[in-house]
Design a protein around this nucleic acid. Structure first.
Length: 493
DNA sequence: CGGCTTTGACCAGCGC
DNA sequence: GCGCTGGTCAAAGCCG
């Protein structure tokens, strides 16, 4: 205690303690949830290659085309690290894994401008600062002729605006499954390709979802979790000011999300960006302010019709630093979105050898897993790194090397990062991930069964509930873990 | 009649 | 301070 007081006076050590405490609890949570652990994070510190592989996937059995149909990711992952406590409280009102959340159920999860105005009229309280922070978003690009994608939820349109640079209006929807549900979505057609529907989700459902809604929800949750965790890490003063190497590592990892490379063989397009600033995730000197805008992941479900069923079979097995985030089991999507063959085995792969940097969306980053889109043909020519890790057009960027060294030279960070990522990504639907010391990058092990037997389809807004299914509790066994982690993340700030 | 969409107005944030 | 833009509100109308 006394030490803590002394350290708190110093500031940064206190932050470091918080971080350590955070990871300690993560470890505890992970152990508690280990029985049903699906997420795997592994790293191997090879003497020769210093390889570090962080596998964010969830183990799965996709051999012989058999896909486990179990839902792996729930919806209790809070997208916004700054709204976690609030969301956790909301979840606690309808789920069993809340821990000491507030008892009163908020009547308005998405404070209207009036409320915000009221909040801001006073002191710049912590609460208002939280609301100043933007929630993480997940944007999904899919070819769809209908007004909107049927993601299983019920939506009510509450507005429509003409967006700059796009002749198509942007429609605003809110989830009506629960009156207090904070989830919003924006639907807009791509200006370059009108057949592409861009659906942006924001917020966390605070109610059980129809089974038909879990596919999209799982996708968005898992994707945004990446942003969530990394942004949280980067906002830690201890990381930004004290641990240069670790900081460099995180930045580099994030940069690896911000692709300079393009792998046309893999099929998912993860883009992490904040609008409208360019390279948000390239942060030579990470700072909190960098994350004030909406951090967004884009899932690009569009692929050229000529592409074959892109699965996770072409994942590079080894790379100096890799973050492997993948999932599978979206077979129903294939029938719903026939032009997205990759969905048959939904996967994403974050890897310094497979990422690309697109400059089309105002500097946002994309991890393209699909083939290069015709609509994106005018974009910055991606740099492709082959699967055998041969760098074809550019040498390894220094930040990646720095990241590798930082990670490999700092076991604590390895463990912490691995654990945290496991907790955030792999714990849903069965508990925390497990840390393995063996070299795990085989696709069969890496592929995660994320969601299946779920439907995402195009539908008119008038018939959004195209496939009405009985409500099923979107249960997450790791809720307590997430909540505790989120609470600690809160304390970081 | 209830639920939904439409649409103009309003507000806040941001850049200049 | 001003204008632009994104996001939301709320009244009016539509639809089953």
């Amino acid at each position: 205690m006394q030490d803590q007081k002394l350290e708190s006076a110093k500031g940064e050590p206190r932050e470091e303690n918080k971080m350590l405490e955070f990871f300690d609890i993560l470890q505890q949570d992970k152990a508690e949830d280990a029985t049903n652990a699906k997420g795997t994070i592994s790293y191997e510190e090879s003497e020769e290659s210093e390889l570090v592989s962080l596998s964010l996937g969830i183990s799965s059995n996709i051999g012989e085309g058999i896909v486990d149909k179990r839902l792996e990711l729930g919806l209790d992952i809070n997208l916004d690290p700054l709204d976690e406590a609030e969301d956790a409280n909301n979840l606690s009102t309808e789920s069993s894994f809340g821990e000491g959340g507030k008892e009163e159920e908020p009547t308005e999860m998405w404070p209207p401008s009036k409320v915000l105005k009221t909040m801001k009229s006073g002191d710049k309280s912590e609460a208002s600062q939280k609301h100043d922070q933007k929630k993480a978003r997940v944007s999904i690009r899919a070819r769809c002729d209908a007004q909107t994608m049927n993601d299983g939820c019920q939506w009510r349109k509450y507005g429509q605006k003409m967006a700059k640079g796009n002749p198509c209006p942007r429609a605003y929807y809110r989830c009506t499954v629960s009156p207090s549900c904070p989830v919003r979505k924006q639907v807009q057609r791509c200006a370059e390709d009108m057949s592409i529907l861009i659906t942006t989700y924001e917020g966390i459902h605070n109610h059980p979802l129809p089974m038909s809604a879990t596919a999209m929800a799982c996708t968005t949750s898992s994707a945004s979790t990446i942003i969530h965790f990394l942004s949280s890490m980067l906002q830690s003063p201890s990381l930004t000011s004290q641990h240069g190497l670790v900081n460099s590592a995180i930045s580099s990892i994030i940069n690896s999300f911000a692709p300079n490379n393009y792998n046309p063989n893999n099929a998912l397009n993860f883009s992490t960006y904040q609008v409208p600033r360019p390279p948000q995730f390239y942060i030579p000197n990470p700072s909190i302010s960098t994350f004030n805008s909406h951090p967004t992941i884009t899932l690009d479900l569009t692929t050229p019709p000529s592409s074959s069923n892109s699965t996770f079979t072409h994942v590079p097995k080894y790379s100096p630093t890799s973050l492997n985030f993948n999932s599978s089991g979206f077979s129903p999507l294939q029938s719903s979105i026939s032009q997205s063959p990759w969905i048959n085995s939904f996967s994403a792969y974050f890897n310094t050898g497979t990422v690309t940097q697109n400059t089309n969306h105002g500097g946002n980053y994309m991890l393209n897993t699909g083939n290069i889109q015709p609509s994106l043909g005018h974009l910055h020519q991606p740099i492709y790194m082959s699967n055998n890790n041969t760098i074809s057009q550019q040498s390894f960027p220094d930040p990646i090397v720095a990241a590798t060294k930082a990670i490999t030279s700092n076991p604590k960070f390895q463990s912490a990062l691995a654990t945290a990522l496991t907790t955030y990504v792999g714990n849903e639907g069965g508990g925390g991930g497990r840390l393995r010391e063996n070299h795990v990058t085989e696709s069969a092990e890496l592929n995660s069964k994320l969601c299946s037997e779920n439907t995402i389809a195009c539908a008119s807004s008038r018939n959004s509930n195209m496939f009405p299914l009985p409500l099923q509790v979107s249960k997450s066994a790791s809720g307590s873990c997430s909540n505790r982690s989120n609470q600690l993340l809160e304390q970081w700030k």
